[in-house]
């Protein structure tokens, strides 16, 4: 079982946004209106036998269609299939929208940081901010000539845009813009892991409290396969053996134990399971420090036993 059932949407339009990025416009095959969504939401798309999450680029308010922009990645079977095989008129299985990178309503101002294809959820936040009249500033780091949606970002952001062509320019822009935001600002960043680390470190040095920083990992860090461990499901008495390279989630699903799940990379939070005994090696991007140290819950898709066994309240 996944978080929400897959539906098939019809590909209404395909645009080549840059040399490596394709925009795919999706509509309900029966012409029904699609549900609205929170800015920063993503769709999980099944393409070429792979499930991948792609950010929606619209405001989410009364959408006429769902738009995603897909970067062709090296060795990416899903993105390669979307670039080479998908045609207008095809039906594409999608799940969601899911909101995992939401806007903080109580903020008084937003600093939106995009790097590369990380511009997709930032564009969504920017559109929503303009509709609701929320103060916003955008930093967009890109490789010259390969900036997806640059014209739209320029038009929507107007004078509230700082363009940063290249990694050095982005580092400089972060240093400057994070240092001069008024109290009450929340900062949002989406991009490669290295840029998010730079963003977080720069913000921390500038004195930002962690609760005002929001990051969207579109490339989850590579995880080690981990050591084997045993998991006892207390309520059913089922004993699971979790080998190295297999996740607790996979072991549970293989044994017929139903655990809701979606991203399978420690980002969406769907497969949170209650822990009744043992210490957890947390490897997700969802739980906060207090939740980690409590050892009372874990994300079954990435986290493992810190020792050789765990007991779960399942």
């Amino acid at each position: 079982m996944s978080g929400s059932p897959a539906v098939c949407l019809r590909v209404a339009q395909i645009d080549q946004v840059t040399a490596g990025v394709r925009q795919i416009v999706l509509q309900d095959p029966d012409g029904r209106r699609l549900p609205g969504y929170a800015p920063g939401s993503h769709l999980t798309v099944t393409a070429g036998g792979k499930r991948n999450a792609y950010s929606l680029t619209g405001s989410g308010i009364a959408p006429d269609d769902y738009r995603i922009s897909v970067l062709r990645t090296r060795g990416g079977e899903g993105s390669g299939w979307l670039h080479d095989s998908l045609r207008v008129g095809d039906l594409l299985p999608v799940e969601g929208p899911r909101s995992a990178f939401p806007f903080e309503l109580a903020s008084t101002r937003s600093l939106l940081v995009a790097a590369g294809i990380g511009v997709t959820p930032i564009l969504s936040h920017l559109r929503a901010a303009r509709i609701w009249g929320r103060p916003v500033e955008v930093v967009y780091g890109y490789r010259p000539g390969a900036a997806a949606h640059l014209d739209e970002v320029r038009e929507l952001a107007g004078p509230d845009l700082v363009e940063a062509p290249g990694r050095a320019a982005l580092a400089q822009a972060l240093l400057e813009r994070l240092a001069c935001q008024p109290w009450g600002t929340h900062a949002y960043a989406c991009g490669p892991t290295a840029v998010l680390e730079l963003f977080t470190a720069t913000a921390r040095d500038a004195g930002w409290p962690p609760v005002r920083l929001h990051v969207e990992h579109f490339q989850a860090p590579e995880l080690a396969p981990g050591r084997p461990f045993a998991a006892l499901l207390r309520r059913t008495g089922v004993q699971l053996a979790v080998p190295s390279g297999t996740s607790l989630l996979e072991a549970a699903l293989d044994a017929g134990v139903d655990v809701p799940n979606l991203c399978r990379r420690g980002v969406c939070g769907q497969c949170l399971v209650p822990v009744a005994g043992g210490r957890v090696d947390h490897r997700d991007l969802v739980l906060d420090e207090t939740e980690r140290q409590a050892h009372t819950s874990m994300l079954a898709c990435v986290s493992r036993a810190a020792d050789d066994h765990l007991e779960l309240d399942l």
């Binding site: 549900p35 609205g36 969504y37 929170a38 308010i61 909101s99 939401p102 806007f103 309503l105």
Partner: peptide, 8 residues
Amino acid sequence: TRLPLTGT
């Protein structure tokens, strides 16, 4: 429930 547009 969670409202779709704002997550409220």
